[in-house]
């Protein structure tokens, strides 16, 4: 049976993880490769590496990192952050990434999704959507945001999710900026709406604070995967415990211990 996926997300700057990481057993907690390998060994189903470097030098460092990750770990991983062209994607896939995630560039130039799907296949094109529930002239609506969720766009989230699927995205990474960082749980209703409205997998992100939040997002939220960062980095939730918990609750989970 196809299992629900647990995905730790690592923010990387100049080749190193930036969010505080609290792993005493790691030689170098800032080493993005070592941390990824640890998560893989713990049973993470995939990894996401987000490059938050702004400089050109940083970008080539990131490519080097992607290569080292691919050489080291034997589970799939997605890379994202600042990807805006076919050439960017080609370099990252060639370095060994399994999928790429595009966000602002897809908003600026939706045709890029079509181009990437045609060139590399939908299976490796993830479109990340940062969304926030805000007041608009039509009342409160879910609106796509860019720039780390700070800048609203003209796009409404639910039709945009459908559009990116129709253009060839193979997966959605949906981050609710309303719940992100709150540890009060994922945006269940919106995630469920988008998951049921489309026919591609949805990775839910933003708001995970407890193990039951993952249960909720896989059941009520209809998500295919759940992503989180700091609760894993700070060991508030250990991945093996989380997977045991979800499996005990009868969800299809890949157990590795």
């Amino acid at each position: 049976m196809l299992t629900k996926r647990i995905i730790p997300c690592l923010d990387v700057k100049d080749g190193r993880t930036v969010k505080g990481v609290n792993f005493v057993n790691l030689r170098d907690a800032g080493d993005a490769v070592e941390l990824g390998a640890l998560y893989a060994a713990q049973g993470a189903d995939e990894l996401v590496y987000l490059d938050i470097t702004a400089t050109i030098d940083g970008r080539s460092t990131f490519i080097e990192l992607v290569k080292r990750v691919a050489q080291t770990i034997n589970i799939p991983f997605t890379v994202g952050g600042g990807i805006s062209s076919v050439a960017d994607v080609s370099a990252l896939l060639h370095a060994g990434a399994d999928k790429v995630s595009i966000n602002s560039a897809a908003v600026r130039n939706p045709d890029l999704i079509d181009e990437l799907a045609l060139e590399f296949g939908s299976q490796c094109i993830v479109v990340a959507i940062d969304t926030r529930y805000i007041d608009t002239e039509h009342g409160k609506e879910h609106i796509v945001h860019t720039h780390g969720g700070r800048k609203p766009t003209e796009l409404r989230t639910i039709p945009w999710a459908k559009e990116v699927e129709d253009r060839g995205a193979g997966e959605l990474l949906l981050t609710s900026m309303d719940t992100d960082g709150t540890k009060n749980g994922f945006a269940l209703e919106l995630t469920a709406t988008i998951s049921e409205n489309g026919n591609i997998p949805v990775i839910a992100s933003g708001g995970a604070g407890t193990m039951s939040h993952f249960y909720d997002v896989f059941t009520t939220g209809k998500a295919d995967a759940g992503l989180a960062a700091s609760i894993f980095h700070f060991r508030e939730i250990d991945i093996p415990d989380l997977k045991d918990y979800l499996s005990d609750k009868q969800l299809p989970i890949r157990l590795t211990r």
Binding site: L2, R5, D45, G170, I200, P201, D224
Partner: peptide, 10 residues
């Protein structure tokens, strides 16, 4: 079922 079949299956 969603297509593609993407993820871990036994």
């Amino acid at each position: 079922m969603k297509v593609p079949h993407m993820g871990w299956n036994n």
